[in-house]
Design a protein around this nucleic acid. Sequence first.
DNA 1: GATAGATAGTACGGTTCCCTTACTACCTGC
DNA 2: GCAGGTAGTAAGGGAACCGTACTATCTATC
Lengths: 153, 153
Amino acid sequence: MATRAGRPADEGVSEIPLPALFTQAKDVTLAELHRRLDEEGFEGIRYSHGAVFRFIDAEGSRLTALAARSGLSKQALGEVVTELERHGYVERTTDPDDHRAKTIRLTERGMQAQVAAARILGDIERRWAQHLGPDRIADMRMVLEEVVRSEKS
Amino acid sequence: MATRAGRPADEGVSEIPLPALFTQAKDVTLAELHRRLDEEGFEGIRYSHGAVFRFIDAEGSRLTALAARSGLSKQALGEVVTELERHGYVERTTDPDDHRAKTIRLTERGMQAQVAAARILGDIERRWAQHLGPDRIADMRMVLEEVVRSEKS
DNA sequence: GATAGATAGTACGGTTCCCTTACTACCTGC
DNA sequence: GCAGGTAGTAAGGGAACCGTACTATCTATC
């Protein structure tokens, strides 16, 4: 393969740019998560569904709350909820105290999917830890969390 | 804030799911990269332009080669090249030896942008290293690269 | 207790970014 | 010199989001 432009020769071995590296790590993780969820019978789950699974309260949440927590617009989150509803992961019921609002609640199946997703992500992280060392994975987490926290402000 | 469903209480402090963590790290990095490129006069650059800047050869590359290296379709990469051409970062010239093919080459400005992007990403990584420790950042890189490598196969 | 303004959710249309299918132009091997 | 392969483009579509605008409902104030 020919030489690439703009690459000072002394720049180290691989040097995948950080954004590409993070994207690939995400893609790899998500591919396994979705594949295994599917294998366990939890079909049709995609990335942005996490906005519901991550942020929903045990007693149910309102659409507006989930949108705010996840950073998605109300409309986008509404779409996500409709999709999850079609797959039987959540249900929408009108709030008896406020007829404008609807409470979004996980169904039994939704809770099982949530638990399964957490377990699978835990599995993945544990496998990485076995392969590369638990402290290194824990430290990677801490570094990333710190980076995100400090840069967001 | 109310309790969240499906979260065993013993599960540690933050526990952002890995895909969300990687996505946020990518977004934070990319936001700074694009902001600073823009400040330096390199406007209109977005994520997928990296497919060209990362993989183009010093002597120019063919569209098909860039598509294959980046994993994008030829059409998507053609769009990206057209956009970069409009902004003056690359030029397309017909290959004299093969009139089907066109050679895509960085312009002077394109090379400057490429160098600037590498410098800015280096800055970011260096700042993280100062803040969190150089070995930790280097190790994060190695961990991520290893994870991506091993999971892709 | 009427009404102005805020809030919950939905509808509609648009953008971005990628894909697949289908095509044209050109090249190469038999 | 033609069959089949390859480079690139065109056209259309879908996923995943956004903003604007709307309806229904609630709440605070007079």
